[in-house]
Design a protein around this nucleic acid. Sequence first.
DNA 1: TTTAGGG
DNA 2: CCCTAAA
Length: 689
Amino acid sequence: MELHKRLDYGFIGYQVPYIPRATRSARGRGNIRKKSDSNEMCAFDLLTTVAGKLLLEGESTSNSSGKDQSAVVKDTTETVKEDADTPLKENHCNERCQEQGFFISQIVSEAPVVNHCLSKSTDMLSGPASVITSSNCSDKLGSAEQFINGERKTENRNCSTKVEHELSGCGDFSSCTLGAESKKQLKINLSNDATNKRAAICSSEFHDPWDRKRSMLVASDNTVKLSLSTDLDPFGSFPVIQNDVQLANKDDDEKSCGCTQPSTRNKAFMPAPRVGDWRMRKLQASKYWEVNPQSDDEGHVNVDNETRHVYQKRENVYTSERSQRDFPFKKRKLYYCNSFSNSDGGSSDGICSSPTKDLNRDASGYSLASSGARAAAGTSIPKGASASFRSNDSHVKLKIKSFRVPELFVEIPENATVGSLKRTVMEAVTAILGGGLRIGVVFQGKKVRDDSKTLFQAGISHDDKLDALGFTLEPSPSRASPPLGPEGHSRVLPCETPQPLTRCSPGSTIIHNGMQQETYNAFPDYSGTNLSNFIESDHDSAPSPPDASLEKNAADSRALVPVAAMDAEALAVVPMLKPKRCETVQRRIRRPFSVFEVEALVQAVEKLGTGRWRDVKMRAFDNAKHRTYVDLKDKWKTLVHTARISPQQRRGEPVPQELLDRVLIAHAYWSQQQARQQMKHQSETRLLL
DNA sequence: TTTAGGG
DNA sequence: CCCTAAA
């Protein structure tokens, strides 16, 4: 499989160009705004609204499918323009590729006040960057201005020009002030400095901190930056969804997944409460080849399939699951993946099965956010603040700065031409976008699927919570399940997939089943032992209400059927050594121990020692069904480790030093005891001999 | 099933 | 958290 080197591009996502469509009539300015009372507004309405805005984009994109998108690749030294024949008039935007990363982006601030954006040229635009500009923008500037509404013609022209200038010259980009009425701003970032890779996208005061500290060839951002700003309000009046993908130092896997912890600003914007796990993903990856997922909820799965298909049609170009270790940012990948497949860590699916219930399923570890979510979402009674807010203005003001787009992986021969690369990428993008899109709503890190739920019910009505609101672009269900014919399979198989074709269907909907069930039942009744109290705290973070689970379980059990079938099928094709049931494959949701739990654990271990995990479990976690003795043992292990490392190296919810000290003490003590026991035994046996 | 450890 | 060898 190494006939020739391949460049592995990871498209975790794209910045999808988007220009808010000004509402045709005098209704507004491309604002997502619902006239009706927000409290009455259903999530579905919201979706519709957003989707409507996106439609434009989707159309243009699909129209362009098959054609080569022109692109300007700014390599470190040169600018290449080629094949531009697809005027996407409405799409006037600019796409960039940063460090071999591709993201089509366009930031449009559609707020009334914006005139001071791009002036941070110095550190942003300091070097040649890899920029990909689609025809929509660079080559067809002339027509670009036609986008959307005639009214903007002029303004946009200006902007486009500017853009062009920028793209080619990579010069300073001061600002681009757009027309009076819509006051759009098209902001471009050419971030080039290898070390300072960030897309300087600042809409108004917002700097976009995309940290692109990744190696080349990595297109990392999968967020579509766009603003559907909605109102006359000055920017400051409503939360800015900043795409703080702060994947920097933290172990995404552990705690944050970028979105999970993207700066306090908007934890949930990129939802995906880290549920993903690369391992699981790995499994799934292989599954994708075999199973044709019908899951319409997990867009990326399908996308994967589809994309691969696309590539397989091309001689040398094809996509494949890149090997994990080849990628420096697997974590991120996971993370993004999450939003689609796992996204909610089991929280997404079925969350909303009960319309009236709190959809607040919290993938633990999201604790902070979750508490907020609890407050805002679902059944909980809104705080006074929010209430008053609503009374003043019952409309929900949203500013959508970006959409999440399913990630793509592309593998392409090293000697492939840039042009083919472009085409490849284009195809991939087109495959997704062209197929029609669906909008997903993510709130507080969780997918909101119940379309009938009102924003109020979902907790989306409070200003303060809006920063936790995100939208995702998902392949439409119809397109999502591409006809993966038999040939498709055969074509796919040889590619690799050394892993046993697995046991589960990619559809996380299904996969989540077992896990969720566990989750739901995790906290049956609390009789109120002292320790139970601790754990009860966890109950809070336990995602969803029991009754919701009932309904959901029923649905899931149905969903499981096909899985088994597919599973069998897969096995038939590639016999596995150890066929496993689907349920066993699902990795459990990660549920970080709370301090309370740690306390309980420490206390129990102090008493019982380190070799009696079952007892510890029964003693301290009897009511926490999701904590197995193995979990406790593992937690102890990590606690010991944590206690030994410097505080700076610790991650996650900080454990009080006092507890850590106790951990060390207890650990030392019991280790000693253990050693003594062994000595005893040894001496005894020796004596016997 | 539990433990103990590596992954 | 997962996976497993051992007990």
